[in-house]
């Protein structure tokens, strides 16, 4: 009984702040909400957030492609290919150590490294490419880890069944193993995306900021993002700027919710034939 009470209290600690946060942002943003925030760029203390919204979407799409590919492949490597044959234990390849060290790095340090190495070192300036590389570097270990654990949870009986039918290892991996690990992989990638979308520190160092809309330029062209306005406009001494700050927060929350809902939908669709859903 005590255990039950404790877990309900713990649940409250998780759900409470989340609700408080969402309700707080909505209550402050919705009363003054105007749709043209989505279609205009900042002007003085007012204007809209179109540049930042599009910038964040571009950054998220870039991270999805870059970190999604690298992270999922790394996870497959850890779970399936780097698995030592002799003792059956998880190996500690140098790649895995590197990945774990990387995931422990404070994001602002990564941002600074990006600034020094890419923006200054390679003369790329504040721009999309260094921002993408640094954000991807930040979430790749997370994606690799979640992919790896999703693959490790695939029942041995699926692998044995595939082996016994004479499926080639790679074929079985694609058609049977990854398919049943898909929900875990997708959830990991989408959560990583929302982490990337909500990052500020590395972007301050790499993306710069601009009032203009994202262009097709990868380098030499700063790019805007929502989190910048959440912080900067909140510190402006004007109600108009405060409103924009809450608008940016609301848009971010909606984006993250959309990601989480899509994760659920994808999980539902890919798991129509799963063992857990009879």
């Amino acid at each position: 009984m005590a255990f039950r009470t404790a877990s309900v209290v713990a649940l409250g600690f998780v759900v409470g702040p989340a609700l408080w946060l969402i309700v707080g942002v909505i209550a402050r943003a919705v009363p003054h909400w105007r749709w043209n925030v989505l279609t205009t760029v900042p002007l003085g203390n007012g204007g809209g957030l179109e540049n930042a919204l599009l910038g964040t979407l571009v950054i998220m799409a870039g991270v999805l492609v870059l970190a999604g590919t690298v992270g999922v492949l790394a996870g497959i490597h850890f779970a399936e290919l780097a698995r030592p044959k002799r003792n059956g234990r998880a190996g500690s390849s140098s790649l895995r150590v590197a990945s774990e060290v990387l995931s422990g790095f404070p994001s602002i340090v990564l941002g600074y490294v990006g600034y020094v190495a890419l923006c200054v070192g390679l003369h790329w300036g504040f721009s999309l490419l260094p921002a993408l590389l640094i954000l991807s570097l930040m979430v790749v270990p997370y994606i690799a880890k979640s992919t790896e654990s999703a693959l490790r949870q695939v029942p041995t009986s699926y692998r044995e069944g595939a082996d016994a039918l004479g499926m080639a290892t790679g074929y079985a991996l694609r058609k049977v193993v990854i398919r049943s690990a898909m929900p875990g992989i997708v959830t990991g990638v989408l959560i990583a995306l929302s982490i990337a979308g909500g990052e500020t520190a590395p972007l301050l160092y790499t993306a710069g900021i601009t009032n203009s809309l994202p262009s097709s330029a990868l380098v030499h062209q700063p790019i805007a993002y929502l989190t910048y306005y959440v912080w900067t406009d909140y510190n402006q001494p004007s109600a108009q700027a405060h409103n924009l700050s809450y608008d940016a927060a609301l848009i971010l929350i909606v984006l993250v919710l959309i990601l989480l809902v899509s994760a659920r939908v994808i999980v539902y669709r890919t798991q129509r034939h799963s063992e857990s859903r009879r």
């Binding site: 009986s157 699926y158 069944g161 398919r179």
Partner: peptide
């Protein structure tokens, strides 16, 4: 190896259908 396993099929103790239709 793959053709050996194709020619020598196997059925397991617990049914192990794949998570597909």
């Amino acid at each position: 190896l793959l053709s050996v396993r194709r020619r020598v099929g196997m059925l397991f103790q617990r049914p192990n259908p794949f998570p597909m239709s």
